[in-house]
Simulated scan of single mutants.
Amino acid sequence: MVVTGEVDMATAGTMLQTALREPAERVTLDLRGVGFFDSAAIHAVVRLADRLPGRLTVLPSRQVVRVLEISGLGEQGWLHRD
């Protein structure tokens, strides 16, 4: 699933629900086109990781990596940096 633009309180829930609707053994969340990522977005990704243990891959933009590192999530197994 490719996400671009801003992921915030207005869009994070939609991102989460869309990712969960995709019937797949593995889910890749491509956030390389995301320029803004707030606490609602963090919460959505953590919930997604909880619902898909060992089956989630997140491809982050620089901004997403920075936010995840600041929030203490920079070393999660689901986070894959280029």
Rank of each mutant, 00 (worst) to 15 (best):
V2H: 15
V3A: 11
T4I: 14
T4W: 06
T4M: 07
T4N: 12
E6K: 09
E6H: 05
V7Q: 01
V7A: 03
D8Q: 03
M9P: 04
A10N: 07
A10F: 13
A10T: 04
A12I: 09
G13Y: 06
M15T: 10
M15G: 02
L16V: 05
L16E: 04
T18N: 10
A19I: 02
R21Q: 11
R21F: 10
P23S: 12
P23C: 13
P23F: 12
E25L: 15
E25Y: 08
E25S: 08
E25K: 15
T28A: 14
L29Y: 03
D30L: 09
D30W: 08
R32H: 06
G35W: 10
F36M: 03
F36H: 14
A41Q: 04
I42R: 00
I42E: 02
I42A: 09
H43K: 09
A44W: 00
A44D: 01
A44L: 05
V45H: 00
R47L: 14
R47A: 03
D50A: 14
D50E: 15
R51G: 00
L52Q: 01
R55L: 11
L56D: 02
V58L: 04
V58H: 13
P60E: 06
P60C: 05
S61V: 08
R62W: 04
R62N: 04
V64N: 04
V65G: 00
R66V: 03
V67T: 12
L68V: 09
L68Q: 01
L68P: 03
E69M: 02
S71N: 04
L73E: 12
L73H: 07
G74Y: 05
G74M: 06
E75D: 14
Q76D: 04
Q76I: 07
W78Y: 02
L79H: 08
L79K: 04
H80D: 05
D82M: 06
